[in-house]
């Protein structure tokens, strides 16, 4: 990879200042960024490590539900969110593998917004709030397509606030090679209604399945989905499955998630 300068700020303010420099990029767990840099597909002049910023780490309950510092590793979320939001904890415990979970962070995942990542489904289905150094962004406004988010240049996610649902589950059907989600579905039932987010499937990245939400809000049972179907149009088609297959999986997984929701 190209060489760069690595800086390790200890406060958000320092990190933001560093990111203001030409060619600077944020480094969180690095589990996606480092392989990309090895391929020389990403060539920053400076990496600003966020993992040493204490105020960006940890899991706690707050006004917005469950608050998770953006630099919190998946393994920590898997453990510390287990009581308050088991579906979210389970999702975190299923990302990558144990070594990846010890480095990769929730903020890194959401900032990257890989169309096959797990966390975007949780954030979108939970109606989470993405808190940055500048503002709070509703999940519905945050995800803007494959690898695209509402984040501005130099803006960093500091915390994610998850309203805690009555019931929720995330089910992932793994792409056999990468083990990212070939399709993943997060179903969350709130007093205000059910939210369903699908990852891995669409060319536009994570999305809400409105028809399923309406049907499940009326009747939170797999049978409510029977008559629904998603179109394969606009879905990712590759070596691992057609658009139709992904659309089909989304329905199967939604049903299973409803059954599994607790």
């Amino acid at each position: 990879m190209h060489n760069f300068e690595l800086v390790k700020p200890s406060t958000i303010a320092e990190a933001v200042a560093a990111l203001g420099q030409e060619g600077a990029q944020a480094l969180s767990g690095g589990q996606t960024l480092i392989p990309t840099m090895k391929q020389r597909l990403n060539m920053p002049d400076m990496l600003v490590s966020l993992t040493g910023i204490a105020e960006m780490k940890g899991v706690c309950k707050g006004d917005g539900g469950l608050h998770i510092g953006a630099a919190t590793q998946h393994a920590v979320v898997a453990k510390e969110a287990a009581a308050a939001y088991p579906a979210l904890a389970k999702l975190a415990g299923g990302i990558g593998d144990p070594a990846v979970r010890n480095r990769g962070t929730i903020g890194g995942s959401l900032a990257n917004n890989d169309p096959s990542a797990c966390y975007p489904a949780a954030a979108l289905a939970s109606g989470a709030t993405i808190v940055t150094n500048q503002r709070s962004i509703a999940a519905d406004d945050y995800f803007q397509g494959m690898f695209a988010t509402a984040l501005e240049e130099g803006e960093i996610i500091t915390e994610i606030r998850f309203p805690i649902p009555e019931k929720a589950a995330y089910l992932k059907f793994e792409q056999p090679a990468s083990r990212f989600a070939l399709t993943g579905v997060f179903v969350a039932k709130y007093p205000s209604g059910v939210r369903v987010a699908v990852t891995g499937a669409s060319n536009d990245g994570v999305f809400r399945w409105a028809e399923a939400e309406a049907a499940l809000s009326a009747n939170f049972a797999p049978s409510a989905l029977e008559s629904l179907s998603l179109s394969g149009e606009g879905m990712i088609a590759d070596l691992h499955g057609s658009g139709d297959y992904r659309a089909h999986l989304a329905k199967v997984l939604t049903k299973r998630a409803v059954l599994a929701a607790s």
Binding site: P176, A177, S178, D238, L239, H240
Partner: peptide, 22 residues
């Protein structure tokens, strides 16, 4: 699971462990 695939232009579609299922 294992499949080494090329597209019609001879580009390798399964060029890493991300796409070649080990």
């Amino acid at each position: 699971m294992e499949n080494c695939a090329y597209d019609e232009n001879g580009q390798l579609l399964s060029g890493s462990f991300m796409d070649y299922a080990m």
